[in-house]
Computed example of a mutant assay.
Amino acid sequence: MAIEMDEPEVDGLGAAARALRAWQYDGAQPQLHPGDLGWYWRFGVERTAAAVRTWSRDGEVVAVGLLDEPDLLRVAIAPEQQRDEELARQLAEDVSAPERGVLIEGKVYVEAPMGALVRELLQKDGWESDEPWVPLRRALDEPVEDPGVRVDVVGPEQASERTTVQRASFDGSTFTEERWHAMAAGAPYEDARCLIARNAQGDAVAAITVWSAGEGKPGLIEPMGVHRTHRGRGYGQAITVAGARALRELGASSAVVSTPGFNVGAVATYTSAGFVPQPETRDVYRPG
């Protein structure tokens, strides 16, 4: 049976999330994680459904795409299907044709596993490699050290503090208390934790959200930030260690995160928290 692309309804998001969970394993090429879907859920379930695309064969989901932006599609592919020619050709056709309703016209980007055949097909058609990203990983088979600062698990009562730290960590952030509640209501958040680190005065100075994909699978950090007025004091390392501890408690086999290669400060923070850089990844893009 041919590959079929679908924009799932709200009720169909569960199938996409289950597929993403099933495809995570240690040693795999980094690709879209259920936590990425969970983080996007802050925009609401309807908008999340509108941003998701699935590709199926014989009723089984074999690829999932998330439109992080109108010009950026992040794609996960079932590990055993990443070199499947029929799927790769269908993916390449769908992302290359604006009338298919996946990506807009002009310059657009696709993130897909580095070894996936679809990348090669797109590059043969004139797509180019973008700037490098650095994935980092910390194994969680051993207990994680104490972060050395007070760390609180965020619930509804702390949502305002959590979102305030986010906005003070990232210029242009639109993370509000309302959006935290939308994210927390999403199915992926059942296996997630938001944490805030506090200084000696009790101020919230750093925050992290971590996402488990299930027992024995890699968990994701998305995102981590330090309040701009409290940087340079080790809080990034501390909250990252706290996030790794939380993922281990959730049953994750490892903690993973990716950051742009030019962000040397972020790479240094994650490395100081016990994360090991992995081979770089690159999106592919179609020049405008």
Rank of each mutant, 00 (worst) to 15 (best):
I3H: 06
I3W: 06
I3S: 05
I3Q: 04
E4T: 12
E4C: 03
E4H: 12
M5F: 13
M5I: 10
D6S: 13
D6R: 13
D6W: 10
D6G: 05
E7A: 14
E7Y: 08
E7D: 13
P8I: 01
P8C: 02
P8T: 02
P8A: 03
E9S: 12
E9P: 05
E9I: 00
E9W: 03
V10R: 10
D11Q: 12
D11R: 14
D11S: 13
D11K: 11
D11G: 14
G12A: 06
G12Y: 04
G12S: 07
G12T: 02
L13A: 04
L13T: 00
L13Q: 01
L13E: 01
G14I: 08
G14V: 12
G14N: 07
G14M: 10
G14Y: 08
A15E: 15
A15D: 15
A16G: 12
A16F: 15
A17W: 12
A17M: 09
R18C: 10
A19T: 13
A19K: 07
L20N: 10
L20S: 11
L20G: 09
L20E: 04
L20Q: 10
R21Q: 04
A22T: 07
A22L: 14
A22C: 05
A22S: 15
W23I: 14
W23F: 14
W23K: 11
Q24H: 06
Q24K: 05
Q24D: 03
Q24W: 05
Q24Y: 04
Y25P: 04
Y25R: 14
Y25G: 09
Y25H: 15
D26V: 07
D26F: 05
D26W: 07
G27R: 05
G27H: 06
G27C: 06
G27I: 02
A28S: 08
A28L: 07
A28M: 11
P30D: 12
P30G: 09
Q31S: 11
Q31N: 10
L32C: 10
L32H: 09
L32M: 13
H33T: 04
H33N: 01
P34C: 00
P34M: 01
P34G: 02
P34K: 05
G35P: 02
G35A: 02
D36F: 08
D36V: 07
D36L: 08
D36H: 14
D36S: 11
L37P: 02
G38A: 00
G38Q: 01
G38T: 00
W39I: 00
W39K: 01
W39T: 03
W39S: 05
W39P: 03
W39F: 11
Y40G: 03
W41C: 02
W41N: 00
W41L: 00
R42M: 12
R42S: 05
F43V: 11
F43C: 05
G44K: 00
G44Q: 00
G44W: 00
